[in-house]
Nucleic acid binder design. Structure first.
Lengths: 338, 338
DNA sequence: CTGAAAGCGCTTACAG
DNA sequence: CTGAAAGCGCTTACAG
């Protein structure tokens, strides 16, 4: 009737399987068969359904499919950062692998390590996708990992494996400790009296890069200077670099990542200290730019993308349909022929 | 019976709202009220429900909620890359904004610009989340954008707005053209006879950075050299840089991004050409490292994160519940008092 | 080859 | 304040 004001909703409601069924003059189950490529549909029926699908612009609802199937093909990664090289490269590896497996990838950034914020992110992620990967290279990630309910499939990329109050966790890590020790020994082998360390933020005193560095120094009987650094980025490296540049006894510096190394190099340059003439610098990660610094950077290459892929496959193993193995039960009804 | 082999599914089925209801001795609607914080529930009832929730480890299914509500609070971004600075920073802006709005963020990388691959990614994204942001700074992104059905809410970050066969599209862009022109004029103003350009991959001959550069040269009556470059990364810059270094007439170089500029600087350095003494170099983007190069890089700062946030809010406007405005229909039943 | 029934886990009215 | 009913859009058996 003309007396009612008409309300135009901006977006027409999407066609459902039943709308298609009606348009094609079949049941909705038949539509389901067609869109799922079941072979048991008469050619003519299929064509009518397809025509209706086309005409109505039907798109099947992924959430309805997920509900009906009782599972989501989604995975979310919880990470403190997406732009720093290491994090971004791990993410890239995860993305490649999950895409190859046909899973959707959600990402949720942990902006702070404040308890309630982290908890909110974890809970959102948990009921959003049922499977998680957390990149726990910082406090926020470590916090997040502790809050994941035991029955949620998950994998954690960690600095170093550790006992988490006795719970077994699916950790993944690289042997940064050995790498840091090797880099330190290399510098020592070059004749440096000792090696200074500009750290990425330490999760614990025994963070693997720091630990490897310290171990190598102790092994060699070299003095162990106080580590510097309080950040991940170039600026933090630059600031640490200025302190080091002011100390003429400093001749070798190991850095927790390549960004820090760039900052140190810049600070040394400003202070007029030649690299590598007067001061040697080593980075960590081998970001794609590092080979093009001036001077090009000696560094430790880490296969972050490979690590990301490994995270995914470990997770995938957890969520894959368990193969129910049939067992032969041997009782009394069988025996060798007489 | 003992004759059947028993099959243990590895993961116990999660508790539903009905399981909780049964455990608490109420209806499932009441459970729904409690978990949604409805006030109209008796204290005692609420407590029993909460206890059951706790005991059963109940977690509400986001997909069921989405189905019942008829909408997904999810958004997926389609992008050709996640690690290059520009892409990563846009992504970061989108992530911040969508997290603030309580929406889930999925990401799907377009690995190639091959038609079927892109189509698959778009379709997956469409029925996965119903709302899309595409970063169309490369061919894959441009392809993807063309395949998005008209009725799917979406926003596209583009190099430059263009008519897409007449369809109006929700584009977002920055004025790179003006910025490139300004940078070029700055170099010209320094006294350089002309400015060479190392391009990021060109979408069209009139890609805005290239166009701005060319315009500024023409304006000034300066010769317009052939642009170089065939990639996004430092290596591509390095290779272009070697060609430029071999040409003694080259004194100023504008680069399509900071990574390219780093490569050019490295190549110039190797060729013994001083920067900025003999050759001036300008980048684009202002990545966080660029201020710490040696020499520190003159560049064009772009607010990628802001652009990402803008993408989100434009999208959010599209998917927000349309406010249905009531209209006063004036007919014959009303008039001024006698 | 095709349809009627039941269910996935929730929410939204509607009656008490 | 609380429950019975219907529905969101699909899928999985089960009968023809």
């Amino acid at each position: 009737m003309d007396v009612t004001g008409h309300t135009t909703s901006s977006r027409p409601k999407a066609a459902s399987i039943r709308d298609v069924a009606k348009a094609a003059g079949v049941s909705h189950q038949t539509v389901s068969r067609v869109i799922n490529g079941s072979s048991k549909v008469k050619e003519a029926t299929r064509d009518r359904v397809l025509a209706a699908v086309e005409e109505l612009g039907f798109r099947r609802s992924a959430t309805a499919v997920a509900l009906a199937h009782g599972r989501t093909r989604a995975l979310t990664v919880l990470t403190g950062n997406t732009t720093l090289y290491g994090y971004a490269a791990v993410l890239q590896g995860i993305e490649e692998a999950s895409r190859a497996a046909g899973m959707s990838l959600a990402i949720s950034v942990l902006e702070s390590d404040e308890e309630t914020a982290v908890r909110a992110a974890v809970e959102h992620a948990v009921d959003d996708s049922g499977a998680l990967i957390v990149i726990a290279y910082d406090k926020a990630g470590v916090q997040a990992q502790r809050m994941i309910p035991e029955d949620v499939p998950h994998v954690v990329a960690v600095e170093t494996p550790a006992d988490d109050e006795g719970r077994q966790r699916p950790w993944i890590w690289t042997d940064d400790r050995a790498a840091a020790a090797e880099a330190t020994r290399y510098l020592l082998g070059l004749g440096h009296r000792t090696v200074h360390y500009v750290a990425i933020p330490l999760l614990t005193e025994s963070s693997p890069r720091a630990a490897g560095w310290r171990t190598a120094l102790l092994e060699a009987g070299a003095p162990v200077p106080e580590p510097l650094g309080d950040g991940w980025d170039t600026k933090a490296g630059y600031e640490a670099g200025r302190m080091l540049a002011a100390d003429p006894s400093v001749t070798a510096v190991l850095c927790g990542n390549d960004d820090l190394a760039l900052g140190v190099i810049r600070a040394m340059h400003e202070a007029g200290r030649a690299i590598p003439g007067e001061v040697s610098v080593i980075g960590f990660d081998d970001a794609p730019q590092s080979a093009y610094f001036t001077p090009s950077l000696t560094t430790v290459r880490l296969d972050f993308a490979g690590l990301g892929r490994a995270c995914f496959s470990l997770l995938h193993d957890q969520i894959a349909e368990p193969v129910i193995a049939p067992h032969l039960i041997i009782r009394e009804s069988t025996g060798s022929p007489a």
